[in-house]
Amino acid sequence: MSEALTFEHPWLLVLLPLALLPLLRGRRDTLAFPSVAWLPRDRVGQLVGWLWPLFAILAIASSILALAQPGRPQSFVQRTGTGAEILVLLDRSRSMDDRMLPANWREIDPSSLLYHTGRGRKKADVARELLSQFVAQRPDDRFSLMYFSNRPLSVVSFTQHDAVMQAGISAGVTGRGLADTEVGRALVAGIAEFDQRAYSGSRIMLLVSDGGAHLDEETRERIRIGLARNRIALYWMYLRSYNSATLDTTDDRWANAPELALHRFFQSLPTPYRAYQAEVPEDLSRAVAEVGRQQNLPLDFLEQIPRRDYSRHFIAVAAFACAMLLLYRSMLLRSWQ
């Protein structure tokens, strides 16, 4: 608020003297009368006679000011938060539209389990809901949101404004998921988000996904180097589907599962890595809470406050003045008849 008012097109202010035009009293808009003095003094009429040039001046002046586009200039504010920079990579593949298992799935008879899996809530919905709670609980963090399926899709770049983030999260409801789960490309794109940013606090990449992928050697290398260079901690929230591998299994049956391959690759990274395996919604919320507890380091950043344009107000004033002038004009008697 302390910033001075600036104009986008200051040269238009040259036109401002035009606002004095209504003070030049033309004879055309009046009716000649032999002697005004002998008419009764009409206070209302007198007031209207004073007001309409005022409204005309106001209309012209504020139109010119609106054209010049006044506004508070764009500025930067140094802010200190206690949170982290968190990039959420949310899986938007078709498998995320599957249901989660009910909480007591271990006690359910395996023969009717398939029925119960159709009863739970969608994984994507649960994940979105928890994420939005997570964002709401951590006002100091800076979030970025990226959906991915067969290609990454940046939705919200780093911001501290929760409303933007919440809107981004709820935007994921639209439509159904896509076919593929390209974790490698998503990770590379996520790391690139951090590339041009000054390091000002702890950085987390939160991968929310229900499946893994086999990554080729080149991608692995890029991810490894990227995470190390940008000093990013990777958290993987693994939403386990019914009939897929748990991350800590040693069973040979799952030796080739893509989830396990990914997990093993992440474990081999030099940067911090944690995996949270969630089978039921309660697991997922526990995992989210744990992430929240972990990262609470001070964080300095410059926030850009965008330019605020005030021309809208001036246009409103001009429109009001013009409306009053129209009203005046409609009440005018043009002749003696």
Binding site: D29, T30, L31, F33, P34, S35, A37, Y328, L333, Q337
Partner: peptide, 22 residues
Amino acid sequence: PRHDGLMPLRDVESGRRSTQWL
């Protein structure tokens, strides 16, 4: 005049203005 309305009047001699709301 028969119709109601605003009449901006100008004195032909003094040029003085006066608005009458009829």
